[in-house]
């Protein structure tokens, strides 16, 4: 049992469905920005998306080809390890299922790689079955650079550092390879409902 903080009553938000807020999180209306370095500026002419690693043949899409893929608009709740959650966010993008559609692989893990050098690792089963997208629009508008545009990975059932900003591809791996924050003290999986924030969780 946590000790009671003398005199703390808290400012519970009215009208928030508590069942949608994981332990230790609070709901925000704005969209905070967190990243470890400067925001990369990649022109759409230079942008490509690549599925590589352990598969028969690497696949690469240009920006034009990528946004011509069948997209989906979906509404999800997102949760950042720095404690804020944002409910009912609306995104448009291509599901990872679609990108892996005719890929033949025995891989069990993926590593997302990004402009700026950021990486994050995920089990393949966390990015398939309608659980992950490469999103290029937020709220019907092109995704802003500070929020990861032109495109970011979105894996809303895990803490948001797994939803790599400025994503440029996925590497399929037969072994797990901890990414940027995962080697700097953050949990390897990051399930907000189990409060998997740090190594010791």
């Amino acid at each position: 049992m946590a000790p009671v903080s003398r005199g703390f009553r808290g400012r519970r938000r009215q009208g928030v469905d508590a069942s949608r807020v994981p332990p230790g999180q609070y709901v925000v209306d704005d969209f905070p920005v967190l990243s470890a370095g400067p925001t990369p500026q990649t022109g759409l002419d230079d942008w490509t998306f690549t599925i590589g690693g352990s598969l028969d043949e690497e696949r690469t899409w240009s920006w034009e080809q990528f946004v011509a893929l069948p997209g989906e608009t979906f509404t999800v709740d997102i949760h950042c390890v720095t404690k804020w959650s944002k409910l009912g966010t609306i995104w448009t993008g291509v599901s990872v299922d679609r990108l892996l559609e005719d890929v033949d692989t025995a891989a069990e893990f993926v590593s997302a790689f990004c402009d700026g050098g950021y990486t994050t690792n995920l089990p393949l089963e966390d990015v398939t079955d309608g659980q992950a997208w490469i999103a290029y629009a937020f709220d019907g508008e092109p995704l802003e650079a500070e929020h990861g545009g032109p495109a970011r990975l979105l894996v809303p059932h895990l803490y948001l550092w797994k939803s790599a900003k400025w994503v440029r591809g996925l590497t399929l791996l037969d072994h797990d390879e901890p990414g940027f924050w995962e080697t700097l003290g953050y949990h390897n999986r990051g399930d907000p409902w189990n409060e998997e924030r740090y190594w010791s969780d």
């Binding site: 925000v28 704005d30 905070p32 920005v33 967190l34 990243s35 470890a36 370095g37 400067p38 925001t39 990369p40 804020w84 700026g116 050098g117 500070e146």
Partner: peptide, 29 residues
């Protein structure tokens, strides 16, 4: 966030290696 975005962009514009620029942003929230 707005200050960090602004300053980090200026630094990269001045020729600083983005890999040597470490940022920590916080919002009013």
């Amino acid at each position: 966030t707005p200050l960090v975005e602004h300053v980090a962009n200026l630094l990269v514009g001045l020729g600083h290696d983005p890999r040597l620029v470490k940022t920590e942003r916080f919002g009013p929230t």
